[in-house]
Simulated assay, not measured.
Amino acid sequence: MDGIADLDTADLDAAAVRVYQLRVTHPTDGAGQLAARAGLTPVEVARAEAQLSAIGLLQPSPGGGWVAVSPESAAESLLAPMEQEILQHRIAMAATRERLHSLSGDYLEARGMRSATSSVELVDGLGNIRSVIDDLARTCSSSIDVISPGGTQNEEAMRAALPLDLDVLGRGVRLRLLLQYSARGHRATVQYVEEIVEAGAQVRCTGVLPSRLLCYDRDCVVLPRDPAQTGAGVALIRDTAVLAFVGQLFTHYWDAAEDFLADPEDGAAEAAPDAAPHGIERDVLQLMAAGKTNEAIAAQLGVSRRSVSRLVGRLMDRLGATNRFQAGALAARRGWLASSPPA
Rank of each mutant, 00 (worst) to 15 (best):
A15H: 14
A244R: 09
A331E: 09
Q229I: 15
Q248D: 15
P81Y: 09
S118W: 06
D255S: 15
V19Y: 07
N323W: 07
R114V: 11
L87K: 09
E76I: 06
T9L: 15
A268F: 09
G302S: 09
D263W: 03
G125D: 10
R171T: 03
Q33S: 12
P277W: 10
L287C: 11
R159I: 02
T322R: 14
A199L: 12
S118V: 01
Q51K: 13
S119C: 11
Q326S: 04
E295L: 07
A80L: 14
R97G: 05
L319C: 01
A92K: 06
L166Y: 00
G302A: 12
L164M: 06
F260Q: 07
L136G: 02
V222A: 14
S61A: 14
A331H: 09
A10T: 14
K292H: 15
V45Q: 09
L285G: 06
L57Y: 03
P224I: 00
P341D: 04
A46D: 10
S102C: 07
I4P: 00
I133T: 06
L57H: 04
I4G: 07
V242H: 02
L243G: 04
G56D: 04
R138N: 06
D239L: 03
G151Y: 09
R282M: 10
G247D: 13
R334W: 03
D2Y: 08
A235D: 06
S141Y: 04
G328E: 03
V24L: 11
